[in-house]
Nucleic acid binder design. Structure first.
Lengths: 131, 131
DNA sequence: CATTTGCCTATTGACATAGTAGGTAACAGG
DNA sequence: CCTGTTACCTACTATGTCAATAGGCAAATG
């Protein structure tokens, strides 16, 4: 289940894409437009900066801005950054191939196939498709 | 993310399907074969009974048994019973159409499409495909 | 009637989620 | 240089879910 963090991040990115022409957008504006607590958005925006999806500048006239062109972002990379992983089961989350049952697990192939489908879906969906 | 509850439930169902010929299977046997705490499996098995996916009988010679033929179960119904919902976002979890943003939400169509894909995948996957 | 088995209630520790609060650092315009 | 604006930093908290564990009761069979 995608958490609010992932969903809010997506809405920040959409908002930035829609107001791309206005230069740097302060979080205050986004919070008002999207009706989300600015304090909470700070946490999320910070992670977007750390993940190199947006750039942030302090001070008067500062705010956030997309680094690339809007059409060069995929929904998948945004969600994966925020959620840590899009994996459907813990066994596939990171490089935890430590599951001793992996070799004989009867369900693993199904999870793998589903994860591939999920990955393909979100990584082929571009941010601009949501505008 | 599918929880252990959903994954264990699937393993119970697989185990029951594989030992269908042996009549009623006590949880003790499943716990040993699958290397899962019997106590925890009790909780899960109880829910499978309540959801009418298996039948349980107490007493000597008792145990669990599939109600239908193995090929008549889908992975989707098992997972949905255990997880409550397979929805990817809270807005689509139950009949909570209460989200005031639903009409203008730019991301809702994407979540709906993804959920449909997920639903189709798991509901077209039969239990017997995992044996 | 004793043993086996499912079923019921309660409790627990660990962790994640969804925030809130208050302060500090950077930056621009006057 | 000063002041206001903006991002960034640390810390805290309430709530809920997950993944179990524990102990006993009910039902069924030989």
């Amino acid at each position: 289940m995608i958490s609010t963090k992932g969903r809010y991040a997506l809405r920040i990115m959409i908002d930035l894409a829609e107001h791309e022409a206005d230069g740097r957008i302060p979080l205050k504006d986004i919070a008002e437009r999207q009706q989300i607590s600015k304090k909470y958005l700070e946490i999320i925006a910070k992670e977007l900066v750390e993940g190199k999806l947006v750039s942030g500048t302090s001070g008067k006239g500062g705010g956030y801005r997309l680094i690339r062109k809007p059409e060069e972002y995929t929904v998948g990379e945004i969600l994966e950054l925020m959620e840590g992983s899009l994996a459907s089961v813990a066994c596939l989350a990171c490089a935890e191939q430590t599951c001793p049952r992996a070799d004989t697990c009867q369900t693993l192939p199904m999870w793998s196939e589903f994860d591939k489908m999920t990955h393909d879906y979100f990584y082929s969906k571009k941010l601009t498709e949501l505008l």
